[in-house]
């Protein structure tokens, strides 16, 4: 159920590479854990993010959660659709529920992330 060409963090963000860009979102596990998302706070385009720096916050009815950047780079686009339809993160976390796109500063950052099978194993460990 987790797409194979993604990379994941222990905090349940994902990154998908598109050339020099990394598309970033949160995993299905994370959205289930949060429940109904009602607000997403996004950084301005042009913001420089370091690895593990806070991208923004996601508010669900019951909790607030910070999202951390899986890789370093400059924000080139944020998902404008989330302002009116934040529930897209619940409905399609790995697709239309993407959060932002970064122009990667260092592709080597990706090496520290988990490939899909490793992330799935990591989740199994959390559920026991």
């Amino acid at each position: 159920m987790y797409p194979q060409n993604f990379k994941f963090t222990k905090d349940h963000e994902w990154a998908r590479v598109e050339g020099d860009l990394a598309v970033i979102g949160i995993s299905d596990f994370a959205q289930k854990h949060l429940g109904d998302v009602v607000y997403v706070d996004l950084p301005a385009v042009g913001t420089h993010l370091a690895v593990h720096q806070t991208i923004g916050t996601i508010e669900s009815v019951k909790a607030v959660s910070e999202v951390f950047s899986p890789v370093s780079g400059e924000v080139v686009e944020t998902n404008a659709g989330l302002a009116d339809a934040p529930e897209t993160i619940n409905q399609d976390p790995h697709g239309n529920g993407w959060i932002l796109k970064l122009k990667m500063a260092n592709k080597g950052d990706l090496d520290a992330l988990m490939a899909t099978p490793d992330y799935e194993k990591y989740l199994e460990g959390l559920e026991h």
Binding site: G35, D36, V38, V61, K62, N90
Partner: peptide
Amino acid sequence: VEYKGIID
């Protein structure tokens, strides 16, 4: 705490 989701 929830079944289908709090909003639903």
